[in-house]
């Protein structure tokens, strides 16, 4: 579904991503793990088109997307739950969800999707007209996920969805990720919580200072002595 082939990404003179290659197959949950500053967010931003590759190629459903505008990439079927949630805090819960369906012009379909998001996250329904910025961190994360689902993505990019949440909420969010995947959406998950991520993923890539240093079956990595020492504490 997604193939990343030898990409290099720079911030000015800083070489943030070095020759990274990986792929995500249809229906999979693939996770990118790595320490702070390893380049996980940079990779997701590059896939979404917010950052550009200097060299290398990204293909989605066999089409190169590394020169496509971000709003076109969304239309092709890639949605993104960004790091730090980045919900529209001055807009209501409902308006945030409507923004998620911005590229869809069918009002009825949008309303059905909103109902579906509310079924998944009943807490959002209770707060439908609340300003998003006044919600708790967990609720905001649910909104960020719900908003991304509104475009009915084929591939969902998730950047540290468990960040800053209490353990019980982390478990809830990971259950939801599995549900979304079971319903047919492919997932590329970035996490610092490697334990949780590996436990739900099919495959994983380990990133260190902009390079892929290890890849493999998630369960095997979870059992790997070196990985345990380096990333799982």
């Amino acid at each position: 579904m997604l193939t990343v082939n030898g990409i290099n990404v720079y911030y000015g003179a800083i070489h943030a991503i070095k020759d990274v290659s990986f792929h995500v197959g249809d229906g999979e949950i693939v996770t990118l793990i790595g320490a702070n500053g390893a380049g996980k967010t940079t990779i997701l931003h590059t896939i979404s088109g917010l950052l550009r590759t200097k060299t290398g190629e990204i293909k989605f459903l066999d089409n190169p997307i590394n020169k496509v505008e971000p709003h076109e990439i969304l239309k092709m079927g890639i949605a993104h739950v960004p790091e730090g949630r980045r919900i529209f805090s001055q807009m209501t819960v409902l308006e945030n969800l409507q923004m998620g369906a911005y590229t869809r012009n069918n009002k009825e379909e949008t309303n059905n999707m909103i109902e579906m998001v509310f079924e998944k996250f009943p807490r959002l329904k209770e707060r439908v007209n609340q300003l998003a910025g006044t919600m708790s961190g967990g609720e905001q994360q649910m909104l960020a996920i719900g908003r991304a689902l509104m475009s009915k993505p084929k591939l969902l990019l998730m950047d540290e969805p468990s960040m800053g949440l209490a353990p019980i909420l982390v478990q809830e969010i990971f259950n939801i990720i599995q549900e979304i995947n079971a319903a047919g959406t492919t997932i590329l998950l970035v996490e610092q919580n490697a334990n949780m991520a590996l436990s739900i993923a099919n495959r994983a890539y380990v990133l260190e200072t902009g390079k892929v240093v290890l890849e493999g079956n998630a369960k095997e990595l979870l059992g790997d002595e070196n990985v345990r020492k380096a990333y799982l504490g």
Binding site: G49, L50, P82, R86, M91, Y102, S151
Partner: peptide, 17 residues
Amino acid sequence: KAMRAVSEDHGAAQLMG
């Protein structure tokens, strides 16, 4: 609404399409 979204966060607005 898109104008308000862009005013808050260009990047997040782009991610909405």
